[in-house]
Amino acid sequence: MDSQSRADRIRFEPADLARHPEVNALLESTGLGRFVADTVTSPFGRNESWMGTTDRGEKVFVKTFDPPGRDERLRRTLTFAERAARAGIATPRVLGHAESTATVAFELLDEPRSLLELFTASQDAGEDFDTEWCLRAARLVAETHRLAPDGFDTSAHPLPPLGPMNALTLRGYLGQSGAELHMWRLLHNDPEVLAAVTAMKEADGPGVGVWVPIHGDVRLDQFLVSGDTLYLTDAEESRLGDPARDIGAFAGEWLYHAINRIPTVLSESHVVGHVPTHQEIVATGAAEVDRFAPRTRAFFAGYLAHAGLDASLHDDLAVRAARYAGWHMIDRMISIARQKQILAAVPRAAAGIGRSLLLDPRQFLDTIGLRIPAHAA
């Protein structure tokens, strides 16, 4: 999660620039100056990054990619930025980069807010999230999928991680948290999920299905609003792949947020001390999924309107996207488990819903908002 957003969300004191001389070296080599120390902050993320103002008054965001695969992630980032700029897709401009240190400088957007931040603010205010943002996000994703494929990475996407899903190495086992061990035990004892995930990943390849330039890591915090413009950011996993991966990830985001709402809704709707029944939990979850589905429905309709796909491909695309939405739910459980000692009920419930989507995606197209609009059929 390397984003320029103010709310995604945790800011720390910036990583010591004295330990990262490559940052100011890059800025100086591109004529941007040096960071003014007291203007610099660092967002939480996978890679070390800094944002602030230089002594020449330039506002910049700098990221240095960490191993493993840092060179490949830099190349994918630069390829996407160049192709997107050429096609007029809104993404932060690259101001310079250094291959030797896998460091890249971007323009720092003015007062950026992610779609995750806007959604959270709407929840806090008791308001509905404007589905117009979903339509705009859909157009960015569709335009990405219509880029010319030349120059994009053709390597297999690292997710799902079939190795650990089959078995852990001794070294991997010893490094797991308690929640991770619980999570892997659930997955290792579910051969149907493993078979479905394996088939899904094997179908994402040249000559197997639709293969286009994809973002590869679609999440609400990858879309930033600055002024009146919506930007698509953080394309280090971009490559040629199945467009259903990006669509399913967007659908999975809303599905997860719907499930994440269950404890809050139950606590607000019952007296203190009431223990919800299984039926109450299921009914609440179904209601929340139904409430969130219009966001995915708007996104999918917007995507089909701009993607330029033959209508004969729509149905299969929807089914594959639903399967990827299911994987997104399981991936959420994997990510959360890395940070915990106890695997909580919400990620387990999300993974359970993900399992249903993986095994029978067509059954849930209406439920999650991936039914093909009548005008697009």
Score class of each variant (00 low, 15 high):
10 I>L: 11
11 R>S: 10
12 F>K: 04
19 R>C: 08
22 E>S: 09
25 A>L: 09
26 L>A: 10
27 L>Y: 05
31 G>Q: 08
32 L>E: 03
35 F>C: 07
41 T>N: 05
43 P>C: 03
47 N>M: 09
47 N>Q: 03
49 S>W: 01
51 M>F: 14
64 T>R: 15
68 P>G: 14
73 R>M: 13
74 L>I: 07
79 T>W: 00
80 F>V: 06
81 A>Y: 02
86 R>V: 01
92 P>V: 00
98 A>Y: 00
103 T>I: 02
110 D>E: 13
117 E>T: 13
117 E>D: 13
118 L>F: 01
120 T>E: 14
123 Q>M: 09
125 A>P: 08
126 G>H: 13
131 T>L: 14
132 E>T: 15
133 W>F: 15
135 L>K: 15
137 A>W: 12
158 P>R: 07
158 P>S: 07
159 L>V: 03
159 L>W: 09
167 A>S: 00
169 T>W: 03
179 A>V: 04
187 L>T: 04
192 E>P: 00
196 A>E: 02
196 A>H: 12
197 V>K: 03
200 M>Q: 11
200 M>Y: 13
207 G>P: 06
208 V>F: 01
211 W>N: 07
216 G>R: 01
220 L>S: 10
220 L>N: 11
224 L>V: 06
226 S>D: 01
227 G>M: 04
237 E>A: 04
238 S>I: 03
239 R>I: 12
239 R>Y: 08
241 G>S: 07
242 D>S: 12
245 R>V: 13
248 G>W: 11
249 A>E: 13
249 A>L: 05
250 F>C: 09
254 W>V: 05
254 W>A: 07
255 L>K: 08
256 Y>L: 15
263 P>I: 13
266 L>W: 04
267 S>Y: 00
274 H>K: 09
275 V>Y: 03
284 T>K: 06
286 A>D: 14
291 R>S: 15
292 F>D: 10
293 A>E: 15
294 P>R: 11
295 R>M: 15
297 R>F: 06
298 A>M: 13
298 A>I: 05
299 F>N: 10
300 F>A: 06
303 Y>G: 09
306 H>K: 10
306 H>R: 14
308 G>V: 08
316 D>Q: 15
317 L>Q: 15
319 V>W: 07
327 W>M: 11
329 M>T: 02
330 I>Y: 01
340 K>I: 00
346 V>G: 00
347 P>L: 03
349 A>Q: 06
350 A>L: 04
356 S>K: 08
360 D>K: 02
362 R>H: 08
362 R>N: 03
363 Q>K: 09
365 L>N: 02
365 L>R: 01
366 D>Q: 05
371 R>L: 07
375 H>G: 01
375 H>W: 10
377 A>K: 07
377 A>E: 15
